[in-house]
């Protein structure tokens, strides 16, 4: 069903031949729910092999913006999008790319770990490949190991791959979800507050992992945690709600150090220094 999405299919060795990290360009994007825009007029370039953090107060449309990048936004009833999201210069909303193909190129990790409860650790890792029907039957031990190694979970679970994914701790579950997303060989990984349900030490483990995987992938992360943005992101984009009832707007984007040290907009400075939001 799903066409092969990149010349490097899963049959080639991903550890020696990593999927090319892609570039995203968001152009004049407005995303709405039932006709009410949640985030409007966003222009943003996301560079490959970097971590880009989206920060801002609740309701500023960070998650909605993120979910527009793999068209997950449109899976919500009543959701709409105008403008475009260019994935390596191809607009995912006008080009004839199916959402299924987009999501195989642009993976996603959610706020709460979501291992599939009926599946073992191994089957969870392979879930994306099986769901996209890119794999035949078989154990695919090599793919499982690679994905788990890249997610930094291999040594903790290699002896119990047949155990249910739900038995792992929260941090391990989240890394399992990252392994599951990486096994599909995406070019981009979107992370929607991936650490907000984790304890501090699991958070640090996942953050180290993010720094690791950005060498191969383009990473976009939504976070409420400013320290986390400062720790992991190369580029930071700040969104806010200009006034109650208005859609979220992108205020400022730049290298993380500059955003945190010398923000150019008053709204950014207020948020970062804790005066607003």
């Amino acid at each position: 069903m799903a066409p092969p999405t990149s010349p490097t299919g899963p049959s080639t060795d991903p550890s020696t031949c990593p999927a090319a990290a892609a570039r995203i360009e968001v152009v004049d994007l407005t995303a709405s729910y039932h006709g009410r825009p949640a985030v409007a007029g966003v222009n943003l370039k996301i560079e490959p092999r970097q971590v880009t953090a989206l920060i801002g107060p609740s309701g500023s449309g960070k998650s909605t913006l993120l979910r527009c990048m793999n068209s997950m936004h449109l899976t919500v009833p009543g959701a709409g999008v105008t403008g475009s999201v260019l994935l390596d210069d191809v607009d995912i909303y006008t080009a004839k790319i199916s959402p299924v193909e987009i999501r195989q190129r642009v993976g996603m990790v959610f706020q709460r770990p979501t291992p599939f409860p009926t599946m073992s650790i191994r089957d969870n890792v392979l879930a994306g490949l099986h769901l996209g029907r890119r794999l035949g039957r078989g154990s695919h031990d090599d793919l499982v190991e690679q994905a788990l190694v890249r997610a930094g979970l291999w040594h903790e679970v290699k002896d119990r791959l047949k155990a249910p994914g739900g038995r792992l701790s929260g941090g391990q579950q989240q890394r399992l979800c990252i392994a599951r997303a990486l096994a599909v060989e995406p070019e981009i990984l979107l992370m929607d507050e991936p650490c907000s349900a984790l304890d501090p030490s699991a958070t640090l483990t996942v953050e180290d992992l993010i720094k690791e995987i950005k060498q191969t992938y383009t990473v976009v992360i939504v976070t409420h945690n400013l320290q986390q943005a400062a720790r992991v992101a190369d580029t930071t984009a700040f969104l806010t709600v200009p006034a109650a009832g208005e859609p979220g707007r992108l205020v400022e984007v730049g290298p993380t150090e500059r955003i945190f040290s010398t923000p150019r907009q008053q709204a950014t400075e207020d948020y970062i220094t804790g005066k607003a939001g």
């Binding site: 069903m1 799903a2 793999n70 997950m72 899976t75 299924v100 193909e101 999501r103 195989q104 993976g107 996603m108 959610f110 709460r112 979501t114 599939f116 409860p117 879930a127 994306g128 769901l131 996209g132 979800c177 599951r180 997303a181 599909v184």
Partner: peptide
Amino acid sequence: DLREASLALGAS
């Protein structure tokens, strides 16, 4: 969450 996770993996 499970439906979303599956859709996000490229499942129809």
